[in-house]
């Protein structure tokens, strides 16, 4: 394993990755989990490529095969979480690529999920947790849809434990949208045992209808190394988050064949 450098140079792995897949990790001002997301990509066997929010170069996506928009407080969550970041030049390119026929896989984690909803790649929105406090806990989820680019390595209905940590994590949408999401199987993850923030219908994450864009509030990138993440339901350290990255690699490898 290569070390994560002190500065956000996310690439530079000295050990050869297992695949030649390149996964972009976006940094906005105020992004916090970019180095963690890069580590998760590396541990899954791909090469993380740093992407800069303000990059106006036509090739700003640097030829990546998928994109992770990590968590944090882009622009301090001021105005609304994700509301300022969604207008970054790079976001326009990500939205286009996600909607193109190539269907670029995009994963939005926490603040990344909030940005994806503000950018209208995913429906609904996040408001303050119903208990009004920031909450950081080991959270069990049920995988409700294992046919997306980011969940295909999980069993249908599998329960996984990853980290939940946020202030504005309550997923809300109107009843019609919620009914549509349910009917189309686009609820990707649901909280198990306890709804930690009052999310409608216990929704922790959703996907677009094509299955290439997935957003969720909990953090798979914090559950990739035993001893540095959550405790699973069985009392042992969980690395359940690795499945997200293994899934997208599996899909990319499949497409390449």
């Amino acid at each position: 394993m290569s070390e994560t450098p002190l500065i956000a140079d996310l690439g530079g792995s000295e050990t050869a990755p297992l695949t030649d897949a390149k996964i972009g990790v976006v940094t906005f001002p105020g992004t916090l989990d970019d180095r963690d997301a890069a580590r998760a990509v590396r541990l899954a066997g791909a090469t993380p490529v740093p992407l800069w929010h303000a990059d106006t170069d036509p090739a700003a996506l640097r030829g990546v095969d998928a994109v992770v928009i990590p968590g944090g407080f882009s622009y301090g969550d001021y105005l609304r979480a994700g509301a300022i970041a969604r207008f970054a030049p790079l976001m326009a390119k990500i939205v286009d690529a996600a909607n193109s026929i190539d269907k670029l896989p995009v994963l939005g984690i926490c603040n990344g999920f909030q940005i994806l909803t503000e950018a209208h790649l995913l429906p609904g929105s996040m408001v303050k947790n119903d208990h009004l406090k920031f909450i950081c806990r080991d959270q069990t989820l049920r995988v409700e849809n294992n046919r997306t680019a980011w969940t295909n390595q999980y069993a249908d209905g599998q329960e996984i434990t990853i980290v939940l940590k946020n202030q504005d994590g309550q997923y809300v949408a109107d009843e019609k949208t919620l009914d549509e999401l349910e009917a189309e199987g686009r609820v990707a993850f649901r909280y198990v045992g306890w709804n930690p923030n009052g999310s409608r219908r216990g929704i922790a994450g959703i996907t677009n209808s094509a299955g290439n864009v997935v957003g969720l509030m909990p953090h798979p990138e914090h559950a990739v190394e035993p001893g540095f993440g959550p405790l699973g339901a069985d009392g042992h350290y969980s690395t359940d988050g690795l499945g997200f990255f293994a899934s997208v690699l599996s899909q990319l490898v499949g497409e390449a064949k």
Binding site: R35, D36, K133, I135, C136, K165, H219, H222, G229, P230
Partner: peptide, 14 residues
């Protein structure tokens, strides 16, 4: 108290 603090960010908390 401690649940209101992020103790996972950075991925290096042992």
């Amino acid at each position: 108290v401690t649940k209101q603090y992020d103790h996972y960010v950075g991925g290096n908390t042992a």
